[in-house]
Each structure stands twice: as C-alpha cells, then as structure tokens.
C-alpha cells in the first residue's frame, strides 16, 4: 500500500511540474473543422501571430464542440458558423464580442448522374424533397456542427423530420466534413457541404456540385471572444488584439486572397 501512495505522490509531483502559469500560456484559438480542412487557418494564423505578437495555438472541432469547450473556458477566441446557437451562446453570457468575419456558401453535392435530378431545383428545400421522393441516399454530419444545423434548417422548412426517413437512405456519420464526404462518395449519396471544403477536398470521385444559390445556404462565420469575467485565465487585452486584427485591412486582404486553383474560398465581411 505504501508503494501505491508513493506512486500517487510522484504522479502529483509530475502534475505540478507540468502545470503552466497563465502568463506564459498561449492563446487557444478554436475554429470549426471546415476552416482547418480548407487550409485557411494555416494561412491566417501565422499572419495573426506575426502582427499581434501573440503565441496562438489553433484547435479544430465541429461548431457544437467548440461552443461547449468555450463555455467551459477551454478557449480564448472561437471562429464558428452556427448563427442560432451562437446567439444563444451570447445571450447566456458566455461571450463578450461577436463579429462577422467572412461568408461562403453551402452547396449540395452528389453523384454526376444525379438520379434525383436536383440540378433543376428552384431552391434548397425543393432539392431535398426530390432526394426524399426518389429515395436516394443522403449523408448527414449528424454532429451538431454548423453544417449539420444548416441542413436541419432546410428539413424543418420542409416540415420533414429526417430521422423518420429509412436509415439506409438517411446516413448520419457523426464525423467531420471531410470524413462525411468520404462516406457520401462511397455510398453514391447526396450531401450538404460548404464550398471551401469541397473546393480543397482531394477525394471527389465522380461527385460534383449539383445545387447552389439559396438564401438558406449562406454560410457566415463569426468570431467570438470568450467571457473573460467568468474565466480569469483569459486575457481581454489579447482578445482585443485579435478582434482588432480581424477587423483590419490586413485580415480582409488575407482572407480575400486565400484561393484554391484561382477560386476564392471565403468572402470577407467588413
């Protein structure tokens, strides 16, 4: 038993040795997986670090997980794309500032042959109806991410609960955008994704963009600073540096000039 106690004490000492003071702690910048998978973060963050002199570490999770982590104080600044949940987040006092940074579009991607003939749809809801009517497969993120919630909005406009669809037609992956796309391609299924992830995604198979251009399909990214009052380790000064930078011309041009094969992926918002 004495050995066990000594072991626990040693483990405790290691913990103390590892622990960091808040001063030398880097800023945790948490963003959605889409911004990492498209490569935006690896362009944006080095510029941000250079201009503000801050030490920034980026972590990418789905928006749902990012918001949850931010509530618990595990992030300083977050970049997310789920307006409804963001507003709830702000109303509950978890964040201090929320600014629109950039936007792009959600698109519906599917097999080239387009068995549900959604190419000729008038709007996104119409395209979804066609997919359901023709009993084609649809792959959903199913992970409470921004993209997943955008998809839910379209279903609710149709008054359709996708969970009542046959399970072999409505496939929920519970995974990030890229892995969900992998599933959609294997299953020759339709899927809702964002234009930036799709443009940079390497494993397209014979899938292509079949529907785009609907107000419901606008994808807006907001930057939110985590409430420093409820989390004393968060430094408001560093947060403000980041907020100011994202509103600067430098951020505008960096985002605007981030292109993949000549195509602009995100449109900055002033």
């Amino acid at each position: 038993m004495r050995l066990a106690i000594i072991g626990v004490v040693i483990l405790g000492l290691f913990l103390l040795l590892f622990s960091r003071t808040d001063k030398d702690r880097p800023i945790i910048f948490m963003a959605t997986t889409t911004t990492q998978d498209s490569g935006l973060l690896s362009i944006l963050i080095p510029e941000l670090e250079k201009d503000t002199g801050l030490d920034i570490q980026t972590i990418a999770f789905g928006t749902g997980k990012v918001l949850r982590s931010a509530m618990e104080g595990n992030a300083d600044v977050i970049l997310v794309h789920d307006p409804e949940n963001e507003i709830t987040f702000m109303e509950n006092g978890f964040g201090t500032e929320r600014i629109a940074v950039m936007r792009n579009n959600f698109i519906i991607v599917g097999p080239e042959s387009d068995p549900a003939k959604i190419v000729t749809s008038d709007n996104a809801a119409n395209a979804f109806t066609k997919i359901v009517r023709s009993q084609q497969n649809f792959v959903s993120r199913g992970d409470e991410s921004g993209t997943h919630n955008a998809e839910q909005k379209i279903w609710s406009k149709l008054n359709v609960d996708p969970l009542t669809l046959p399970a072999e037609n409505y496939i929920q992956t519970g995974a990030g955008m890229g892995r969900t796309l992998n599933v959609a391609i294997e299953k020759a299924a339709y899927v809702l994704t964002d234009s930036a992830t799709w443009a940079t995604y390497e494993n397209k198979g014979d899938h292509q963009i079949l529907f785009e251009g609907d107000d419901l399909l606008i994808n807006t990214y907001h930057l939110i600073t985590v409430n420093a009052e409820s989390h004393p380790h968060v430094s408001p000064a560093s947060q403000n540096l980041i907020l100011d930078w994202f509103q600067s011309n430098k951020a505008y041009t960096t985002i605007n000039q981030f292109k993949h094969q000549g195509q602009t992926l995100y449109f900055p918002i002033r």
Binding site: S19, T21, G73
Partner: peptide, 21 residues
C-alpha cells in the same frame, strides 16, 4: 483538466502533458 474541472487551474488541457496523462 478542463477549466471547469477539478484540476482546471493547472491549465494543462491541450498540452503534450495532458496527452501523457
């Protein structure tokens, strides 16, 4: 190790040390 967890004050989440633990 989460900030709202019992050892949150150590600030260890998202560090290599957290992975070791």
């Amino acid at each position: 190790l989460s900030r709202s967890g019992p050892l949150g004050l150590l600030g260890l989440l998202y560090t290599p040390e957290a992975m070791i633990i």
